[in-house]
């Protein structure tokens, strides 16, 4: 099987800081891959490079066999790479409904029918448990619900690769259980790249785990392998709950 996503020597520096430093990475279709690592390890920068939000200093990104390194972000989204923001970035003044309608109306193949947007929006809101809040301005939702709205917007893009950047931050424990179920369900139709600090969530969901440290990949393997890896424990797990 060929990977859905590959990066070769992917690098990005900010001034003198090498936030992402020569990363070779491969992701198989259908996988749930967790990316972990200490604060400032370069995880967000790495997925931002993949989604096209920022440009690499050097290196190459291949998605579904094609070089996408120089494509603008919106084209990558259209090809199936959806990114949900770590720093919640919903449209605060628009209703939850409108927030989700934006991705729904764009992915709609049957552009004419009026009911299709509504159906698509309500489906995405229901999957994330937000249907009852459809007409609230997104800015008035609780922080956890805004995180879920981000996920709903990502879902509504019908992505082939869904990148979730710390989606459980700010969720209550009960919401986290629902979230785990939701990600499993999403993974049946999409590949998931999940940046996450919550180790139980990672261990529960991930098929494989990639550990970042100081802009490089420190280790990669199954959850068991990562748990046993001494270097990882030193760099990261030692400080985890």
């Amino acid at each position: 099987m060929t990977p859905l996503l590959t990066t070769k020597g992917l690098s990005r520096s900010f001034g003198g800081l090498r936030a992402v430093d020569g990363v070779d990475f491969a992701l198989m279709p259908g996988e749930i891959r967790a990316v972990i690592g200490p604060n400032g390890a370069g995880k967000t920068t790495f997925v931002s490079l993949v989604s096209g939000r920022i440009q690499p200093s050097s290196g190459m990104i291949v998605f579904d066999g094609a070089d996408i390194t120089s494509l603008p972000a919106y084209v990558r989204v259209r090809q199936g790479i959806a990114y949900t923001f770590q720093i919640t970035s919903v449209f605060a003044n628009l209703s939850a409904y409108d927030n989700v309608a934006l991705p729904v109306q764009r992915t709609l193949s049957d552009g004419r029918s009026k009911g299709a947007v509504r159906a698509g929006v309500m489906a995405a809101l229901e999957r994330t448990g937000l249907a009852g809040r459809a007409h609230m301005p997104a800015g008035q939702l609780s922080y956890g619900h805004q995180r879920l709205l981000e996920v709903a917007m990502g879902l509504a893009l019908k992505p082939r690769l869904l990148i979730l950047d710390e989606p459980t931050q700010g969720l209550a424990d009960s919401e986290i259980d629902n979230f785990i179920t939701l990600v499993r369900e999403i993974a049946r139709s999409a590949t998931v790249l999940l940046i996450e600090h919550n180790m139980p969530v990672v261990m529960d969901l991930a098929d494989r785990i990639t550990v970042f440290n100081a802009g490089r990949i420190l280790a990669e393997g199954t959850p068991e392998q990562i748990r046993e890896n001494a270097a990882v424990q030193e760099a990261y797990l030692g400080t985890a709950p």
């Binding site: 989204v77 003044n93 628009l94 934006l102 893009l157």
Partner: peptide, 24 residues
């Protein structure tokens, strides 16, 4: 219209609108 919704989205947060696949 849907176009109007996209225009307002650009006003509210252009970066985010791009990340929903719109050529802003």
């Amino acid at each position: 219209s849907r176009y109007g919704r996209v225009l307002v989205a650009i006003r509210e947060n252009e970066e985010r609108t791009k990340m929903l696949g719109y050529d802003t």
